[in-house]
Write a protein that binds this DNA or RNA. Structure first.
Lengths: 169, 169
DNA sequence: TTGATTTATATTGCGCGCAATATATTTTCA
DNA sequence: TGAAAATATATTGCGCGCAATATAAATCAA
């Protein structure tokens, strides 16, 4: 109302993706001191979560779970291998694939990681379980929407990634 | 129930921060083809949003708005300067500061950016305004919670960044 | 079977993010 | 005033993310 011409659509406060971007950076920062004693970065921690949960997985399967491609995963997995946490072995049945599995040390690290979620959110006062639940739900719906948009954009070809649907709720 | 010992807290599906991380990556990817014709990356676009909205700002003030520090901003602002979109000038009153302002070209770019939000979310079918609103609200609450946690962690010193409260709703 | 296409991973180059550190300026206060 | 502390930005080094490209293996088609 002050007279200067302003188009609200470009106001930072109107953006939906900026809080997402900022929160992702803040989360990464918050995890760093918690994961550092385990020798892991946050993306590396996510890879370990998948392997602890699913066991041996190909590079492509890890990428589908985490929405990442080989350009990101290959160097990251090599670092985890150099640390002795995972093995990278060519698949005998299909020599194109590389199977990633846990070493004994990688599997053992799970015990030390048990306290990570509680450390992360235990210190986060004033934050209730159901709010986290709502947030997870809302973000997962955005992920679904972005994936549907990608599929709609190129209907005649397979999408670059074929991520499974975001986890329900 | 299958007998293998499993601790749910480390399941990927239980994580709150992973969808945030994945969504942030997907958003960055989705913005790329939209911003590429403008010669901007998504973080650069955010800087331009602040400058279009606030006008001339110091590096530190930009960092408070975007939750970034000089280690990220300085090289980014140099790239924007090399493109002729912004100016970086030492503050006469306080020679420690560097003020960042728009060039004519940078200010003019705003017109071409007007269509960016609609392009981003216009193609996103099945996604309602109020869902985006809820998402923004939920993520902003997490940002506030993480900031409160940081302040609580080191009460005797000023926090590394002093971000203003996340935008209300 | 062979040649073309598809699939899986690796490589290259670039732009973030950020901790740690360095440098220069300003403020504090003894 | 003058030394110490605080403040603002810059630099360094490293680990992502990802588009584009390369390479090799598997599949498909003629």
């Amino acid at each position: 109302m002050t007279g200067t011409e302003r188009t609200d659509a470009l106001d930072l406060e109107r953006q939906v993706c900026f809080p997402l971007y900022a929160a992702s950076n803040l989360v990464n920062r918050a995890y760093r001191p918690i994961l550092s004693p385990l020798g892991l970065t946050y993306p590396q921690y996510l890879v370990m979560l998948v392997l602890w949960q699913d066991g041996c997985r190909s590079v492509g399967a890890l990428g589908e779970r985490l929405y990442l491609d080989s350009g990101t995963l290959t160097p990251m997995l090599k670092r985890l291998e150099a640390q002795g946490l995972v093995r990278r072995v060519r698949d005998n049945a299909d020599e194109r694939r590389v199977n990633v599995s846990l070493t004994d040390e990688g599997a053992a690290l799970r015990e030390r990681a048990q306290s990570v979620p509680a450390t992360m959110f235990g210190a986060c006062t004033n934050w209730q379980e159901d709010q986290l639940h709502d947030l997870r739900h809302a973000v997962n719906e955005l992920i679904d929407a972005l994936n549907r948009r990608d599929e709609a954009a190129k209907p005649e070809a397979v999408t670059r990634r074929k991520p499974q649907a975001a986890v329900p709720d």
